Amino acid sequence: MIDFHCHLDLFPEPAAVVDELGLRGVGVLSVTTTPAAWAGTTLLAKGCPLIRTALGFHPELAGARYRELALFDRLLSETRFVGEVGLDGSPQQLSSWDSQLLVFNHVLGSCERAGGKILSVHSRRAASQVLDCLDRHPGLNKVVLHWFSGTKDELRRAAAQGCWFSVGPAMLASARGRSLVSEIPIDRLLVETDGPFAKKGRRPLRPWDVTDVIDGLADLWRTTRQRAAQTIRANEAVLLSH
Rank of each mutant, 00 (worst) to 15 (best):
H106P: 10
H106A: 11
G109T: 04
C111T: 05
E112H: 14
E112Y: 10
R113V: 09
A114G: 08
G115F: 13
G115E: 15
G116L: 12
S120V: 15
V121K: 13
V121P: 05
H122S: 01
H122G: 00
R124I: 05
R125F: 12
A126I: 09
A127K: 00
A127E: 04
A127V: 04
S128M: 07
Q129S: 15
V130I: 09
L131M: 03
C133V: 00
D135R: 15
R136E: 13
G139P: 15
K142N: 10
K142E: 09
H146G: 08
W147F: 08
F148V: 02
G150Y: 01
K152N: 10
D153P: 01
E154R: 04
L155T: 00
L155I: 00
R156S: 04
R157I: 01
A159V: 03
A159F: 01
A159T: 07
A160G: 07
Q161H: 03
Q161I: 02
G162Y: 12
G162N: 09
C163F: 03
C163A: 13
W164Q: 05
W164H: 03
F165R: 03
S166H: 06
G168C: 12
P169G: 05
P169Y: 00
M171S: 14
L172C: 11
S174M: 13
S174Y: 12
A175M: 13
A175N: 12
A175D: 15
R176E: 05
R176D: 02
R178N: 12
R178T: 10
R178P: 11
R178M: 11
L180P: 00
S182D: 10
E183D: 10
P185W: 07
I186V: 13
I186W: 06
D187I: 00
L189E: 01
V191K: 02
T193R: 06
T193M: 10
D194G: 06
D194Q: 07
G195A: 10
P196T: 06
F197R: 02
F197I: 06
F197W: 13
A198C: 15
K200P: 00
K200F: 08
G201Y: 13
R202H: 12
R203D: 14
P204T: 09
L205W: 06
L205H: 09
L205N: 11
R206Q: 15
P207I: 09
P207G: 01
P207C: 09
W208K: 06
D209T: 06
V210R: 05
V213C: 09
V213W: 06
D215R: 13
G216R: 00
G216C: 07
L217C: 07
A218D: 11
L220G: 00
L220K: 01
W221G: 03
T223L: 00
T223V: 04
T223Q: 03
R225K: 13
R227L: 14
R227K: 15
Q230T: 09
Q230E: 15
T231P: 01
